[in-house]
């Protein structure tokens, strides 16, 4: 293994390769072009919505490229006075975070058991669990509604936590299972505590090693829960349990004539998620990279 420090090593690598002439220049132009493209397509819709939300209705219907003549906050005032954003945001956060934590906790154990132990029926169980990802939503609506009503959870946040968690089952099992499979058994045994039981091995060794997979599955489950409106429609009813994504649906109908207000409502709906994401993203990245201890 090289004794040279990382920083020195990287700089030598860069100088050596950047001396490679036209090909390297073209390569780096291409790379920046790709990044510029990513930036454009990721930002353009959001920027368009933000700019348009300050326009008047006639300006929105005029030109997409124009800049609002008299930037107006009316849309925001309208949207804010009519809605309970903090409450809806809290409901979304509780349901999404609750579901994500519960899904990783429960399905992680099953994924581990199936990945680590080859017992009679283990492959069949895995196949059956995975098949759930291919069911279209429609046949699921009725049974889920029935279960939630029977459990007396209709119109509670618990209903959303439970359903979003279970919706994450295939993703959690699939990602965590395939990751646990790649962890060599001897690594576990080497780090293992003598006489440790399965629970201890799992929580102290396997799970920490699987942090990238946990984070990946967690992000997917969180985003799916955060963006759901269908189950919020079917399983909740009162304002006290309304989530942000479902509230957005009201705005679409309420302000359907009034494009600036509709767009302002979209901005307001997205704003808290973006703030929280920006605040947490270092945490997310760190936990993802935490897996680097392996190897």
């Amino acid at each position: 293994m090289s004794q040279v420090g990382t920083r020195a090593n990287r700089s030598t690598g860069v100088t050596r390769n950047s001396g490679g002439g036209a090909g390297a220049v073209a390569g780096s132009v291409l790379r920046y072009a790709v990044l510029a493209f990513v930036l454009l397509i990721s930002l353009a819709p959001a920027l368009w919505v933000i700019v348009s939300s300050f326009k008047t209705n006639a300006e929105v219907l005029g030109s997409a490229l124009s800049i609002p003549a008299n930037p107006s906050l009316d849309g925001y005032a309208e949207a804010l006075t009519r809605t309970k954003f903090p409450l809806f945001f809290m409901n979304s956060a509780i349901a999404s975070v609750g579901a994500t934590v519960a899904a990783i906790g429960i399905f992680g154990m099953a994924a581990y058991a199936l990945a680590r132990y080859d017992f009679w029926g283990s492959r069949a169980i895995y196949a059956v669990l995975i098949s759930s990802v291919f069911i279209s939503l429609i046949p699921m609506l009725q049974p889920i509604t029935l279960v939630i009503r029977t459990l007396g959870l209709y119109d509670t946040r618990w209903a959303l936590i439970l359903v979003y968690m279970v919706k994450g089952l295939p993703v959690a099992i699939f990602i965590l299972h395939s990751y646990f499979k790649t962890i060599p058994k001897d690594l576990e045994e080497a780090a293992g505590i003598d006489g440790a039981n399965m629970w201890q091995t799992y929580t102290r060794i396997a799970l920490p090693l699987a942090r990238p997979a946990v984070a990946a599955a967690g992000v997917l489950i969180f985003l799916n829960s955060w963006n759901d409106f269908l189950f919020a429609l079917l399983l909740t009813q009162s304002e006290n349990t309304r989530t942000l994504a479902y509230a957005l649906r009201f705005f679409e109908n309420q302000f359907s004539y009034d494009f600036p207000t509709l767009l302002a409502a979209i901005v307001l709906t997205l704003f808290p998620s973006v703030v929280v994401y920006v605040m947490l993203q270092e945490q997310i990245q760190k936990s993802l990279i935490g897996g680097a201890i392996r190897g």
Partner: peptide, 21 residues
């Protein structure tokens, strides 16, 4: 009265509820 956002959603909710319960 609790509200749902729009006629399509009213139909979806009542259809599902009726099928379930």
């Amino acid at each position: 009265v609790d509200y749902v956002p729009g006629g399509e959603d009213y139909l979806a909710k009542l259809t599902t509820d009726y099928a379930a319960s």
